[in-house]
């Protein structure tokens, strides 16, 4: 399912940057740096079984991902947020998918950045 979402919505990104590749790279780097922080917050919340902290961190990451056009990440994090909102802990498959999508984006940014 998640494969139907691109790692990056290039249309959204270009609309923001106006085609400025330099800016796009800076933006993605800033996003990925902050995403790592959110992922560790999500992991910690999961260990404490704190669904409220989990929901909040997922909500923030989802917003940031949508904002920069990280469509696939936004999609999987939304599922985590939904689970947490229902006071449920998301399955490890979802967490794996999330880290996988982040890694995919990291690769893509690295390969595009000359």
């Amino acid at each position: 399912m998640s494969k139907s979402y691109p790692a990056i919505d290039q249309e959204r990104l270009s609309a923001v940057s106006g085609g400025d590749r330099e800016f796009e790279k800076e933006l993605m780097e800033a996003f990925l740096e902050d995403a790592q922080l959110r992922v560790s917050q999500i992991t910690e919340a999961l260990q404490r079984q704190d669904t409220e902290a989990l929901r909040s961190a997922a909500h923030t990451l989802k917003g940031a991902a949508r904002n920069v056009g990280a469509a696939a990440i936004a999609n999987v994090v939304m599922k985590i947020e939904e689970a947490a909102s229902e006071n449920e802990l998301p399955g490890s498959d979802l967490l794996g998918e999330m880290t996988g999508e982040i890694a995919r984006l990291v690769d893509q940014v690295r390969s595009s950045g000359t």
Binding site: V16, L27, D34, G63, N67, V68
Partner: peptide, 8 residues
């Protein structure tokens, strides 16, 4: 407060 959102 979100850095990338701020940048956008």
């Amino acid at each position: 407060d979100d850095r990338s959102s701020r940048m956008v």
